[in-house]
Amino acid sequence: MKFTRRHTLAAALSVAMLSLFGCGKKAEVASVASAPVPAAEAKAEPLKVAFVYVGPVGDAGWTFAHDAGRKAIDAKFGDKVKTSFVESIPESAADAERVFRDLASQGNKLIFGTTFGYMEAMLKVAKDFPDVKFEHATGFKTADNMAQYDVRTYEGAYLAGVVAGKLSKSGKLGVVGSLPIPEVLRNINSFTLGARSVNPKATTKVVWVNKWFDPGKEREAAITLIGQGVDVLMQNTDSAAVVQTAQEKGVLAFGWDSDMTKFGEKAHQAASVIDWGVYYTKRVGDVLEGKWKTDTTWWGLKENMIDLKNFNATLSDEVKKLVADKRQGVIDGSAPIWKGPVKDNTGKEVLGKDAVGDDKFLHDVNYYVEGVEGKVPG
């Protein structure tokens, strides 16, 4: 008979049991333990990603668009990430620094600050948390662990200007401005350049509210512009108050940063919509794959990060085609927005004939172009 390891083990157990019974003791037969099961591989902790917003997520504009980008991260990466946000944080250095420091201390490894005024506070905190990656929107300073990103909002403003130039009966356009910084001046000027590309006599009036989000002041500014004969409004502010006021007063307007149709279906002609998710999902993916590095990014129509969308049903196919042609010209470089000759509104040439403004030129815009009335606030 062939003995196996199984037979040998059984025989040994039998001898042991007989020995125990012979000694008058209770037999305690231990079960033969099976081979230990390897412990399941520990699940990786999700990447904690935090956002700091200057306005409320319900502003329907700038912050609303950023939060849509945050949600795009959740949708793409699922349980690989855990996102959170803090809203309505002022741009004062003390407030912003406190929030950034708290978020870094809570284990967030990627932190986005979504307004220009956070730059210095974020730069300071980044130095104290070298293992945390920081991203700052619309600024110009970077560090080894702090990147800078922006969207070419002026491209959306330009396309809105094209529509405004075609639709305005008076040729008088208006912009409710937030703060007189290059970003906003660039948008106002591009809006005017777009309008004057189809109506060379179009003019733009500006009323400044000196805040990003203040529905009351935005409404007052819109009413002031309408009282001056403006029949098409654009804004570089964050609430839907301008569109709502345009609807109430019977003039036309554009959504800014997101679709604002629901706030004025008749007034709202189109929206310059930012898709922050394009950038946010790319950067989170880079972190997860260990490929993140500090950088300066400025994306626009070409990268599908901004576009003029949500056209009013009454807008003609002719105008839509014109917008499509202008868009393509910007994307492929055949029809740049900022191509000379361009003069400021005092008659000074800022771009020579056939010269095209590069990114450095665009970042230094601190004047009104021809067609914009008044002076830039000091």
Rank of each mutant, 00 (worst) to 15 (best):
T8P: 00
D286M: 15
M260W: 03
T224N: 14
W276K: 11
A27W: 07
F361W: 15
A94R: 03
K80P: 08
L252W: 05
W276A: 14
S19P: 00
A16Y: 01
D214V: 10
Q269H: 10
A42C: 03
G340A: 05
F311Y: 15
T297A: 15
G347R: 05
V251W: 03
R5P: 00
T204G: 01
V29H: 05
L179K: 10
K348G: 09
D95P: 00
D354G: 02
V198N: 06
G357K: 09
S19W: 10
S258L: 02
A164P: 01
I223K: 14
V175S: 03
L13C: 08
G139F: 10
P36V: 12
D79K: 13
G216T: 08
W299F: 13
V251F: 03
D257T: 13
L301E: 04
A222L: 11
N310T: 13
F134N: 07
Q328A: 10
L167I: 14
K249C: 03
G300N: 09
A16F: 06
G216S: 08
K262V: 04
S19C: 08
W208T: 09
D128V: 02
G374M: 10
K309A: 13
D325T: 15
A39Y: 07
S170L: 01
Y53R: 02
K124D: 14
D317G: 14
P130H: 07
T204S: 02
S197Y: 04
L173P: 04
V15I: 11
A222N: 10
W208H: 08
G161C: 06
K80E: 15
P36M: 07
G165L: 06
Q247N: 12
